[in-house]
Design a protein around this nucleic acid. Structure first.
Lengths: 305, 305
DNA sequence: CGGATGCATATCATAAATGGTATGCAAATT
DNA sequence: AATTTGCATACCATTTATGATATGCATCCG
């Protein structure tokens, strides 16, 4: 284990070039080194990995399955190194007035959008980017510097000390279904009764997924066996057209769907054991400093929570 | 330039540990090296970067702004290296039956979801993950191995030779607005007339953004100056509640919003010069091979295009 | 004021990395 | 059959990396 951390960027670069050109000699030329040197570097990497990355043919190389994985990740790493360089250079030259915000679904419309409308009215030259998605993607994006701040829950694998957290509020989980679903209208539905239906839910690791799975496990029940993972409301609503599907969403989202701008045809199950999802926060990077524009938007959002 | 590619993972790891502990000596201990050795490695990296990454204090180190950027990217690189290792190991052990699909908004419901329903009915034990988002994120995710296939447009910075493309179809762009918008009901609206309104549109680089900007530039017009970037339909619909906002979406999405499961209160402008967005494809990685489950879903989707 | 703490620098030693040339081998091409 | 092409291996040389110990410097604490 732990071969990967002994890899070096010039090795990754060479192997990406081997994969792209299909020839060791061409890759060696691009790397301005002799062919035997390239051959040796490739062999060194393959020894580290413990598997061949290329199949040698008389007229060139074919990338193996593991070789493809290697090259995909190598590209990410090389791109990230380039981004590091660009970002470090950008920092030396001061900031630019563009505010990037991420939000989970409920608060995006409930709290963020009135603030966004206010900012747009007051200073329309501020450019905003608003991305809506699950907490895990948002917090990862925040820590990667892709957002100025996010409205999300903090997934457990992140250290809260790395961030500034402004508390929002806890939310209950509602189970949504089609109005013709046979559990609709039934009082005090037990979790056990829901297991035979299809579920459409956010991915493993997301806070609402964890809240739901905890509720099942807490009652000594297995988690729902038939699951489609998606954080897209369109996908959820589409699947809820079928009267044998259940989807857990936060109460804020449920309210939004049934009476907000969407007027979706859904119903909320009356569940015996209420579930809550971990609270939302407005999250900044602890070390990042916000631009003036970002601070204004943040202030406007905070005033609405 | 190009200092970043001379960085090595053990340097990145050490610097992450310095940032986390706030002390060189503690980081050196974690790295099982002497304090002077760690000090030299830090100095070497700072020389490469050309900027200090830490401010030395009598009782420890404080991370500078560029240091924070460095550490954020370093974490991504180290995580990606770990993912590479995990994925390479997973490949050696054979695949698991979980299908991951990404789709842009329109085809997600129009073509993908009937296929998903069919697969769920026939083989409910297949686990599906469906992510809806913009083409740039989806194709990037595909090339990073996060999806089995995606339904998206191919952004121009990607080389089509790296992928297998199954053609879908071209789409026209519709401009959406609130029914009370003053341009609604007006025949043959010129693009110039739309410039004084707020636009909410997907980010720079997305195919629909490029189609819209091309249309303006083709008529010698500037692009809309007041823009909010978001690919989230919730954000779009929320902003369209204001009668001074316009949003371009594909015709499929427009139809979906106005007559599908959502019944949103929007209107479509009658535009003098029609715009088309580059065609959708079902895209696989050229070198990736699909699992049997993924092939079944792909076949089901292809039969509906 | 003396001791403790934490980082920086100098010097030294060893190991590893890097890349070259020369040459070999196998398959394809002419 | 001879030649060409593309990758692999051996050997050599140089450079770089890595890490140690010894010591110095500045600040803080008792």
């Amino acid at each position: 284990m732990d071969f990967a951390r002994r890899l070096k960027p010039h090795q990754l670069w060479l192997l990406v070039k081997i994969a792209e050109t299909g020839q060791l000699q061409l890759a060696a030329n691009k790397a301005a080194m002799s062919q035997p040197a390239a051959s040796r570097i490739l062999a060194d990497v393959e020894t580290l990995v413990g598997n061949p990355l290329f199949i040698r043919h008389p007229k060139g190389m074919e990338t193996t399955q593991i070789g493809k994985v290697f090259v995909r990740h190598a590209k990410v790493i090389l791109e990230t190194l380039d981004e590091l360089e660009i970002e470090a250079t950008r920092i030396s030259k001061g900031d630019v007035g563009h505010v990037r915000i991420g939000s989970v679904t409920g608060p995006a419309v409930g709290s963020l959008m009135p603030a966004v409308r206010q900012i747009r009215a007051e200073t329309p030259e501020i450019e905003l980017t608003i991305e809506v998605g699950p907490s895990t993607d948002l917090v990862r994006g925040l820590s990667e510097g892709r957002f100025d701040f996010v409205i999300a829950r903090l997934p457990p694998e992140y250290d809260s000390r790395d961030f500034k957290l402004h508390p929002a509020r806890s939310e209950k989980v509602s189970l949504l279904a089609h109005p013709d679903h046979e559990l609709v209208g039934k009082p005090s539905v037990a979790l056990e009764e829901t297991l035979s239906y299809h579920w459409v839910i956010q991915e493993l690791g997301s806070p609402i997924r964890q809240a739901v799975e905890s509720a099942f496990l807490h009652q000594g029940l297995p988690t729902p066996p038939r699951v489609t993972n998606s954080s897209s409301l369109l996908v959820v609503l589409s699947l809820l057209e079928s009267p044998n599907t259940i989807s857990p969403q936060t109460q804020e989202v449920a309210t939004l769907l049934s009476s907000g701008p969407l007027q979706a045809e859904i119903a909320i199950l009356d569940v015996a054991a209420p579930m809550t999802v971990s609270p939302c926060f407005i999250i900044e990077n602890r070390f990042g400093s916000l631009s003036k524009a970002a601070e204004r938007v943040l202030t406007a959002v905070l005033s609405r929570l």
